[in-house]
Amino acid sequence: MSFYAYKDIIEAGDLVLAFISRGATKPITVTPGEVLNTRYGQFEHDLMIGMKYGSQMAGKKGYGFIHLLHPTPELWTLSLPHRTQIVYTPDSSYIVQRLGVGPGSRIIEAGTGSASFTHSFARSVGDKGKVFTYEFHEVRYNEAKRELEEHGLMKNTVITHRNVCDDGFEIDNHKVDGDVVFLDLPSPWTAIPHLNKVIAEDRQVGICCFSPCIEQVEKTVKALEDDGWTSIEMVEVAGKRWEARKDMVKHVDDVVKRLKDIQDRKSQGIEKLRNVNSTAPSEVSSTESTPEPPSKKQKRDRGFNPFGKGTRIKEGDDQYEWRDVTKVESEIKSHTSYLTFAYKNPNRKV
């Protein structure tokens, strides 16, 4: 298990993300003797050892299943224990792309929060880069530190317990030399003046301040301008998830036909008859002249019933006509935060 590279076979001690259902992924450390209990059954860790990452695994009783996934920063983001509001993938992926984060980048991140973005940064900067992350809340700091250690990310990540707004970013024994700054703080404008001591002097430095309120953006923009940052631009990222669905095609001709069918049956007194004699539907259908209903499994004869009214129909049932459609997730993240980008240049030959 590693956030830096994939492996193929699950071993004892690995972090595995047990995908139970959409919206329910449970991180587990594979430990001999232990059992994962879910609403879909029990899953023995011993049996996981030796399986391939990505395998579907059956429950102990032979039914129900989960999938055993290899951790990635993105899947981790979907399963991690929330300590704070987290930076979601549409935001984080855009920040990484726009600020050109890649192998060798030196990141300054404050605060660490749930360390979700820290994982993503650490993955991207590789062994040539470095991530300096700061968290002022002691409990959160300790949890994040333990997590980063367990996930083997300390190779390129340094976490510091610090209120950067008061005490700045300098670290003993490290030249921070940051070229990408990400500030997810209540008052980034108080931290910005401290950056001058730790950002690179021989190349351009990019910054992104992540704030939910427009008033915070105002103050941030002023602080950035005062400190010589340029090309300041604020944007918002709107991410949406869509699902493929099927919608039944209902032709109006069929509606008319069905209404006529009901009328006919009424006039023939069939409806009444059927209610009395509901145990013998075959006799009824033999007396009518309307076309066969498309659904054969119906327990009760509903006459001509092209849309399966009154029965439970599985979306996509072969007996009906469907059109492919998309449906947006029922609750979308209409606002995460404002992203204020800016750059600082040395403005001299280097």
Binding site: P90, S93, Y94, E233, M234, V235, E236, V237, A238, G239, K240, R241, W242, E243, A244, T326, Y338
Partner: peptide, 9 residues
């Protein structure tokens, strides 16, 4: 399916 759109200010 994911859609992402950046809105500049």
């Amino acid at each position: 399916i994911f859609e992402t759109r950046v809105r500049p200010y």
